[in-house]
Design a protein around this nucleic acid. Structure first.
Lengths: 351, 351
DNA sequence: TTGAAAGCGCTAACAT
DNA sequence: ATGTTAGCGCTTTCAA
């Protein structure tokens, strides 16, 4: 019973232990275990080694391997997300999946927004000899990188660097905004109100651009569509929608900067005695877990490709051709259609 | 200019490089940098070393240190959370904060629910010589641990092990349920409906126990209070509340298994032309980010201490007295009071 | 087909 | 007060 042999606290078996038990050299053990190419080991020796490995419950010390080979099979993952919202979580999981598939793990560093802390984190990670770095930032923005990353494969997620040539992956927010608008247009809406998120944000502006593109493409005048500036919170969706409902004619569809604002909008609409989507169509943005899918009626929205971006970042690292990547790669935000959109009601259209 | 000297891809300076430049032995460099006790270094030598370090931008290779000292300053963190809901995220951040404070990092492994994968993950982490393990599980449950963890400091978060003596930290759900109920009782409610979550869950049963304790302590009969079984989704809160509103007299307060159910309840209440909290008081559970705080009116709820549990787990590891800990430690779930609770309206009371 | 030996970058006991 | 040296556990030339 191999397990029974090892008492609590007993030292792990080393390669030397295996070699001794198998009556071979430590090099041979290494050759067998790594199936080193260019080395032929007799079937018999091989079996003896394998038996010894099993008997001692031997597992190579990855730290020692790392020191020797210079590869630690570890990717440093830096986030600036204060509380690991959906963003960092999904991005990590995406990167993690790809990493695992290639036998690597993620060494995670959650840092504040202060650039100095980010730099310190990067250096901490490099001290631990990570093979590559992924830097993920919650709100899309520009970042500064220290010189020390120059020699380390690095991918930026949801951010882009000033003067570095590190490839970045970003959500295609322009297309996201366009797609959301198009859904509404396709249903026959011609009077669409857009309640945007925080104006200063990169994403907000990109989505608004997409909105205008779709409106123009439909032969309508963007200036005649209502756009109101909100702040991505439920309350602002609620307040702005109340304003909207007081107008006449009121819009037949409301597009929100995110799902939370859409929840606020929904409450305001219900309070006014109206129904979604019969009286007013509603679209969110984010596909926030536990919100858009569970609300009544199910909220049509667009998913931010956090998971896909995380996975992409890790995959590029393993593909090993970071230099050939464009400075920015855009990942589409898939539409998630549920029940909150319908054709405008004729009653409202004539109102 | 130290930085300019290092071209891209240039090899990192090693301790030997520093020693050479400072004209001392590599041991001296180590003594200076680690402030090794029992070693006295002349101020002058010390300064020479420090200058060389600065000039070469030297940073010790933590992998090599780890191999030598047997300590990697890394904690393995295992989660079974498929998509890193609020749980894993907050728990990681809590553990991360404590880890950072002690100079350690988190090596993260996200795994499926299958016990074999958990075991494999644990072993992967041990191969990388992590100093300790934290195993965190999303839905409170029992877990099985492999023998290999016996010699490694381990803390369980939100789960407990069968035959191992690893300390566990869990949310005090009984008290949470009791506290929520007490808030309602304190406001004068005597007819409280409890829409529970999934019945099979440990948390659901614990909260229900707390509910009953509070009801009994208030001198009321638990059998006369309505409890309806839901499933933690928005829809079930919506449906059950509709059933509730059809009854007469209808309850003056609704307690929900979680915040998402409370959102469903809110929608049903609004649809029925009633208001929260004027006509009906509402309480959630979880304090789900982006939901409870942003909804209108703000949802009174209880916070699951994910962050606190994660931090606690890491702190115990650094405190280094895991054996002295009780098998289970319960962390309180703080009340978060907002606007969704008021005294029952007299109109309803007499109805 | 296998073994001996050097060495990855560091720490720590032991010399001097 | 500082240097020498022996490893930590592994990979990988080179030799046999």
């Amino acid at each position: 019973m191999p397990r029974a042999q090892r008492r609590a606290g007993a030292r792990r078996a080393t390669q030397a232990d295996v070699a001794r038990l198998a009556g071979v050299s430590s090099a041979t053990v290494s050759f067998v275990l790594n199936e080193t190419s260019g080395q032929s080991i007799s079937a018999e020796t091989r079996q003896r080694v394998l038996n010894a490995v099993a008997q001692l419950d031997y597992r190579p010390n990855r730290t020692a391997q790392g020191l020797r080979t210079g590869r630690t099979a570890t990717i440093g993952f830096i986030t600036q997300d204060v509380d690991f919202g959906a963003f960092a979580g999904s991005t990590i999981v995406g990167a993690h999946e790809a990493a695992i598939r290639h036998g690597s793990l993620l060494l995670i560093m959650n840092t504040s927004r202060d650039a100095r802390f980010v730099w310190a984190s990067i250096n901490d990670l490099l001290d631990r000899q990570v093979d590559a770095l992924i830097l993920a930032v919650a709100g899309t923005k520009r970042v500064e990188l220290p010189d020390s990353v120059r020699s380390v494969p690095t991918v930026l997620v949801n951010c882009f660097a000033s003067r570095s040539s590190k490839p970045a992956v970003l959500p295609d927010e322009v297309r996201g905004g366009r797609d959301v608008t198009q859904v509404l247009l396709d249903h026959g809406h011609r009077d669409i109100a857009y309640l945007t998120g925080v104006n200063a944000a990169w994403a907000t502006r990109a989505r608004l651009r997409g909105f205008r593109q779709a409106i123009v493409a439909a032969g309508l005048d963007p200036a005649r569509q209502t756009t109101l500036a909100g702040n991505y919170k439920v309350d602002s969706g609620y307040e702005l929608t109340r304003q909207l409902l007081a107008r006449k004619p009121r819009p037949t569809a409301v597009m929100c900067g995110n799902d939370r604002m859409a929840v606020g909008a929904l409450v305001a609409i219900l309070e006014a005695g109206l129904r979604v989507p019969e009286d007013i169509s509603l679209m969110g943005y984010d596909d926030q877990h536990g919100l858009s899918s569970d609300i009544h009626p199910g909220l049509s929205t667009v998913r931010l490709p956090y998971h896909a971006m995380g996975r992409w970042a890790a995959e590029q690292i393993f593909a090993g051709a970071l230099e050939e990547l464009p400075a920015r790669t855009y990942v589409p935000c898939p539409l998630v259609l549920r029940e909150s959109v319908a054709a405008p009601s004729s009653r409202l259209r004539s109102a």
